[in-house]
Amino acid sequence: MEMIADYEKTDLGRIEIAPEVIEVITGLAASEVEGVAHMSGGFVGDIAERLGRKNLAKGVKVEVGKKEAAVDVYLIVEYGYKIPEVARNIQDNVRNAIENMTGLRVVEVNVHIVDVEFKSERKLDVEEPHQRVR
């Protein structure tokens, strides 16, 4: 169940933060961590991105309450990095980003490593398309 965080009432009204905002903050904070190759949005999310739709919340699931948030992050790690260290850095970066930007208390940051990417795979993704053979 997704809820809009409704945790502050001012003289002028309520302040609400949509779960999609938490997802974007989480995705950006996780992708900043060294060793993260990219976020994993699953098959449908990856196809949408290849079609040109940039999804900053790719690979993120969020549960938001009135004062707390819990997030799940699905990502691919670069080969050669210590996975437990990368995961802890993601947890710290995500928690800090959400708490500093929204004031919500983060109760969980669950990190799901779904694959490892080798540098040779990454290089193939950014190479120019092959020349046509005539």
Rank of each mutant, 00 (worst) to 15 (best):
A57R: 13
I76F: 04
E85T: 13
V107P: 01
P84A: 03
Y81H: 13
L56Q: 12
V109M: 08
L75A: 12
E85W: 03
E63M: 14
V60W: 10
V94Q: 00
E85P: 02
N89V: 05
V106D: 01
Y79C: 12
L75E: 06
Y74H: 10
V64A: 15
N93Q: 00
L104S: 08
R50W: 07
E78M: 14
Y74N: 11
N110E: 10
Y79G: 03
D72C: 10
K61M: 11
Q91A: 01
Y79S: 15
E99K: 08
L75F: 04
K58E: 11
R105N: 12
I83C: 05
G59L: 07
V94A: 07
I90Y: 02
P84C: 02
N110L: 08
K61A: 14
V94C: 01
P84Y: 03
L51R: 09
E78K: 14
K82E: 15
V111K: 02
D72Q: 12
Y79V: 05
A87K: 03
N100H: 10
V94T: 01
K58C: 13
E85R: 09
G52D: 10
P84Q: 03
E85Q: 12
V107F: 08
A57I: 13
E63W: 14
V94S: 00
T102D: 10
L56A: 13
A87D: 04
R50L: 11
D92G: 09
N93I: 04
V106I: 00
R95T: 13
R105L: 03
M101T: 09
V106Q: 08
G52C: 12
E85N: 08
V111F: 08
Y81A: 10
V77M: 01
M101L: 15
V107K: 15
K58H: 09
E108I: 12
R105A: 07
A97V: 01
E99Y: 06
V62T: 11
V77T: 12
V77N: 04
K61S: 13
G80K: 06
A97C: 09
D72A: 07
N89Q: 09
T102G: 06
A70K: 14
N55D: 15
A87W: 04
E85Y: 04
K82C: 06
A70S: 15
Y79I: 06
Q91S: 03
N89S: 04
H112G: 03
I90M: 02
V111H: 05
K82G: 10
E78W: 05
K66R: 15
R95K: 15
N89T: 07
E108S: 03
K66C: 10
P84W: 06
P84K: 00
A87T: 00
R53K: 15
R88Q: 12
D72Y: 09
A69Y: 00
